[in-house]
Design a protein around this nucleic acid. Structure first.
Lengths: 193, 193
DNA sequence: GTCTATAAAGCGATAGAC
DNA sequence: GTCTATCGCTTTATAGAC
């Protein structure tokens, strides 16, 4: 029964999945323990300030993942490749629609007020990074900004609808549609020939 | 201090707003009382089965609103007018992006399991009604279905992003974009001239 | 690093006075 | 129809044994 874990890096992903499954308010220590196998004592050992610290560190870890795997490639990489990478990584990260976006879930309930800055930054940086990538590919600023917002919002809405209907294909269709729309946007902007 | 309310129809909208603000798990009786001014005693008078009944009746009331104001016009009304009505009603209902979709919020946390049927029906009926409307306007079935899913998912994503960034304009832009896309879809399908 | 015991507060829900 | 008091239970959090 005793689960031996030495580093916080091993417990953070487990806690993150518990928050995903239960929400912030729904994630009591007893339920987290039941889901992860980590006892209350261990949880307080890693997070002395309790639940709020747990959620804050989970959000930071999520943000770090997106920075290295999505934002930075979009901000500095070759545009077409970075875009292709984003569709692929986004699909993988959200388990083809079977995994909830924790930041999005937190944005929808009262939790937003506790983690306002992290939630705000997660979305605005995603939109900004994507818009910048499109601009570097030749799309004008207004269109780039509009499409970036449209894409990020569609990903979130698709995850929500997939979860609501129990049909992951909703998310996969939305991602495929966005990829085609991006392709079209780039093709139109490119000089003919 | 004593707030006198005679009918459930007066208390339901207040309770709904409390759930919107707090989420299901976050909506304790003390917090609901603080937000709505309705005491715990009164709440149990109207909802003898407690919180679960409260949320269930709120979801039913929301569904009823959508049936009469959005689904039925889409299902039986003149297509172009019904479509225009939907954009307008959706914008109004969600307070131009300042109001969360409770069904969407419930879909994202553990609450989904309690109200699975209501959440599922809300979204599938919206998609079906919109797709049917587009078909009656001459759009082929596959395209109608795809756009309907895209529209509903975009509305939910836009509400989420608006709340996350604190910028209602995100929602208004998404709604405007959808209206244009729908217009284009209908125009392409129509015989020329 | 993990577990158990325990304290203090808050929870949903009930009963009964008014 | 509303309010207060109260019951069990669960919650977060702490302390200390191992």
């Amino acid at each position: 029964m005793a689960k031996i874990i030495r580093e916080k890096s091993e417990v953070l992903p487990l806690v993150a999945e518990a928050f995903r499954a239960l929400g912030y308010e729904g994630a009591s220590f007893s339920r987290i323990t039941k889901l992860t196998g980590i006892s209350k004592g261990s949880l307080f050992h890693f997070f002395p300030n309790g639940k709020e610290q747990m959620a804050a560190e989970v959000l930071t870890e999520i943000n770090n993942w997106f920075v290295t795997n999505i934002y930075e490639p979009l901000e500095t990489g070759e545009p077409v490749a970075a875009l292709a990478l984003m569709w692929a990584q986004t699909g993988r990260y959200f388990h083809s629609g079977g995994r909830v976006c924790l930041v999005g879930a937190f944005a929808l309930d009262a939790t937003r007020d506790y983690f306002q800055a992290a939630i705000h930054d997660y979305f605005t940086r995603w939109v900004k990074a994507l818009a910048g990538c499109l601009e570097r590919a030749g799309v004008n600023a207004a269109q780039a900004e509009a499409f970036a917002e449209h894409a990020v919002l569609s990903i979130q809405g698709a995850l929500l609808l997939a979860r609501a209907t129990g049909d992951n294909a909703v998310f996969q269709r939305a991602l495929a549609r966005l990829a085609v729309e991006a392709e079209t946007l780039l093709a139109c902007q490119r000089p003919p020939g």
